Computed example of a mutant assay.
Amino acid sequence: MPVRTTDVIVVGGGPVGILLAGLLAVRGVDVEVLEQRAEPSLRSRAIGIHPPSLRALEQLGVAGQVLDRAVRIRGGVVRSDGRTLGRMSFAPSADRTQSVISLPQTETEAVLRARFAELAPGRLRAGVTVTGVYDRGDRVAVDTVRTAGEAVETLEARYVVAADGARSLVRDLLGIRSAARTGGETYLMSDYPDTGEHPGEAVLFFERGGVVESFPLPGGRRRWVAMTEALLTEATSEDLAALIRDRTGVRLPPTDAVASAFSVQQRLAARLVAGRVVLIGDAAHQISPIGGQGMNLGWLDALQLAPALDRALREPDAAASVLGDYDRRRRRSARMAARQAGFNMAMGGPVQGLRLRARNGLVRMLAVPPASAVLARAFTMRWL
Rank of each mutant, 00 (worst) to 15 (best):
R4T: 08
T5L: 10
T6S: 08
V11K: 02
V11E: 08
G13D: 10
G14H: 06
I18Q: 03
L20T: 14
L20W: 11
G28H: 15
V29R: 02
V31G: 00
S41A: 01
S44H: 11
I47R: 00
L54W: 12
L57C: 14
L60M: 03
G61D: 11
L67P: 05
R74G: 02
G75N: 03
G75W: 02
V77S: 07
D81M: 15
D81Q: 10
G82K: 09
S93H: 02
A94T: 13
R96D: 10
Q98K: 14
Q98N: 15
V100N: 15
Q105S: 11
T106L: 13
T108G: 04
E109R: 04
A110E: 14
V111Q: 15
F116N: 00
G122V: 01
L124P: 14
V128P: 00
V133K: 05
R136T: 04
R139C: 15
V140P: 01
T144C: 12
V145Y: 10
T147S: 12
E156H: 06
R158F: 05
A166N: 07
L174P: 01
G175S: 03
I176T: 14
I176L: 07
I176F: 01
R177I: 01
T182F: 10
G183N: 00
E185Q: 10
G210Y: 10
G210W: 02
E213L: 06
S214W: 04
P216L: 06
G220K: 03
R221I: 09
R221D: 12
A230E: 09
A230S: 07
L231C: 07
T236I: 01
T236L: 02
D239E: 04
D239V: 01
L243G: 04
L243K: 05
D256P: 00
S263A: 11
R271K: 13
D282H: 02
A283C: 06
A284H: 03
Q286R: 08
G292H: 13
N296S: 05
A306L: 03
P307T: 01
P307C: 03
R311G: 01
E315A: 06
A318D: 14
V322A: 06
V322S: 05
D325L: 09
Y326C: 02
R328G: 00
R339D: 11
N344Q: 13
M345V: 15
A346R: 11
M347S: 06
V351L: 03
L354G: 12
L356N: 12
L356E: 12
P370H: 14
L375K: 07
R377W: 00
R382I: 15
